[in-house]
Amino acid sequence: MTELVAEIGDPGAAVSGSPARARQVLRRLRSDRPAMAGLVVTTVLILAAVLAPLLAALEGQDTTTFHTQLLDSARGGVPRGALGGLGAEHWLGVEPTTGRDLFARALYGARISFTVAFGTLVVQLLLGVAIGLAAGFGGRWVDATLGRLIDLAISFPQLMFAIALLAIVPQSFPRPVLLMLVIGLFNWGGTARLTRGQVLSLKSRDYVAAARLSGASPARIALREILPGALPQVLTYAAILLPANMVSEAGLSFLGVGVHPPTSSWGQMLSTATTWFRADPMYVLVPGLSLLTAVLAFTLFADGLRAALDPKASLRGGR
């Protein structure tokens, strides 16, 4: 489908940097309400994550201090009071059995979620674009070989392998970086396949042929002529990968192979919270709704971006 899209679209317009095209995309994006809502929520969440230390200080709490006096010890260590101990001191209540502040833990958890999601994306793009470019631009054998490698990457039983890898690597290795590498290494196949498709469709264009005839080296053609043409599609795809990466991180942390205690992440919080859903629903809702909101917002924005960049829409002259 992506190949088809590129063929129908105006090749020149596909090249980023065209001011008219950029204005058109922006205009369309701005009139897409769900996408704008997604953008606003995403921005707020990212700001909150960046300002986590400040916001926690404003609340007067941190992520690790135990507040045992806020727990009903005889009842399994459930927080005293309604809504998991929610109040002026603890804005989202406290964690059962420890009394650690949930607002602070969720904020710092957001930092892990976003950092890992973005970091993973960088790994995915570097690998996927490089391999996709090589496959699309290289000869028949290179393409065949890399094509099978991409198939392998896509069909790999990644979850099991990720769990095994995360269990083996020494615990002194920084955990968020490891998560980025592990999730990234298993999830670049889609990006590579998309890039290859773009390259295949672009390389038969007249402007590429012109560059070749004028004596440009293959590397120059790949990086200066073809890559810019493929990038919008790739970046749109990247916007969809981002929430998927957040879910992957949460999943691995949920399974207990993510960040180490006492660091919090949404997946880790969900994991410990599941048994409490009846006794202390707040404990599940805080990380659960955080994750849901973030993933939904990112996805809405990514979807809007994809629609706005879709050249088919521009052919029909509207959004």
Binding site: L71, D72, S73, G76, G77, T97
Partner: peptide, 15 residues
Amino acid sequence: VNRQAVVNAVGGSSL
């Protein structure tokens, strides 16, 4: 060592 915190960590004074 804070035994109260440890006891709460494993489920409180009933456990």
